[in-house]
Simulated assay, not measured.
Amino acid sequence: MKVSVIGTTGYGGIELLRILHSHPVFQIQSIHSTKGELPIWKEYPHLFDINNQVLEVINPEEIAEKSELVFLATPSGVSGQLASQFAEYNVKLVDLSGDLRLKNTEDYIQWYKHEPAPQAIIDRAVYGLTEWNREQVAAADWISNPGCYSTASLLGLGPIVKEKLIDPASIIIDAKSGTSGAGRKPTRSNMHAEMSENFKIYKVNEHQHIPEIEQQLLDWNQEIKPITFSTHLLPISRGIMATAYVQVQKDMTLSDIYKIYQEYYQDNAFVRIRPEGHYPSVKEVCGSNYCDIGLHLDNRTGRLTIISVIDNLMKGAAGQAVQNANIMTGLDETTGLNFIPMYP
């Protein structure tokens, strides 16, 4: 199957190229950027003599003529406009930005500060939290790929929220990300001198993934109240740890909770529930499409701690995008994604 990638020079786009390079079915037909026509290896020298394709201008009609599947790895505010241009063509689409995630356009304006895509374009896209929306993804032709923080948080919270076992007003998420989550554009916050040997909070209760997380939580349980969500930057390149704290309402043991999580995720290749007493770290999923989850129940307070780790560029972006594309095109979800995590 022929595919095109738009927005190839960002971290999400270049991670897509890494995955697609060895994918047995998807063949990279063209790559696109607004940076002009130059070989991709001049942007990313590690691709020299591996991928010598030239970045092309973005022409939706020409792209749709030569590709059956398009990945949009462009920034929010851009992807929605491009999706609108692809609407008239018979092409499958996976959008890695936030433009098609929020069904309420007023929420998008408030949190993303951009003009939203038309409602019909937003409604066409299925939210691709693969492990929870598999049937919808399989039937879709457009996918809105979840955000990185949202993926880690929702996979961790899903079973306990779906079963309505917690105080709906008790959700607190303390999330931390490597600096690649801020994108490739140089800013003060991702400078080496600013982040090396440092650790800082940002967008306190203002991160744009908050309404996305709440939208899905409410889909599972309409009693859920607004969450407390804080984000931090770690002095590492990639990886996310989302630690969620919830108050358990029913008399349950940790073993009871483990059984629920294992039942929900037993048929999901990329979610690993760690044994009792074992807690994941970001290094242990680096370079892979895994989400590892650890659980701890404090019998003294009745509070459950959920530790969820992913690689923000893989399960949090490009890896999950390919996983969704696999399912959407009838392939096994693991196709081209059987990467063992890099360690150390």
Rank of each mutant, 00 (worst) to 15 (best):
V3C: 14
V5H: 00
T9N: 05
I19Q: 10
I28C: 05
K35T: 05
L38N: 10
I40A: 01
W41Q: 01
F48R: 15
L55N: 13
E56H: 14
E56P: 05
K66W: 07
L69P: 11
T74A: 00
S76R: 01
V78F: 14
S79C: 02
Q81W: 04
F86I: 06
L93Q: 04
L96Y: 07
R101K: 13
L102R: 02
Q110W: 02
K113R: 15
P118W: 00
D123M: 02
T130S: 05
W132G: 05
N133K: 13
R134H: 10
V137N: 10
A138I: 05
S144R: 02
G147I: 08
S150F: 00
I160R: 04
I166M: 11
A169E: 15
S170F: 14
I171M: 07
I172C: 02
D174F: 03
T179L: 02
G183M: 13
P186G: 05
S189A: 08
S196Y: 08
S196D: 13
H207S: 01
I210E: 12
L218T: 12
L218W: 14
I227W: 08
T228H: 10
T228Q: 14
P235F: 01
S237I: 00
R238C: 09
R238I: 00
G239T: 07
M241R: 13
T243R: 07
V248I: 15
V248W: 02
V248E: 07
T253D: 06
T253K: 02
I257S: 14
I257P: 12
K259F: 01
Y261I: 03
Y261R: 01
A269Y: 14
V271C: 07
I273N: 01
Y279N: 06
E284F: 03
V285N: 10
G287L: 00
S288I: 06
N289D: 12
C291Q: 12
C291A: 10
C291Y: 05
C291V: 06
G294I: 03
S308V: 08
I310S: 13
A317E: 11
A321E: 03
D332I: 13
T334Y: 10
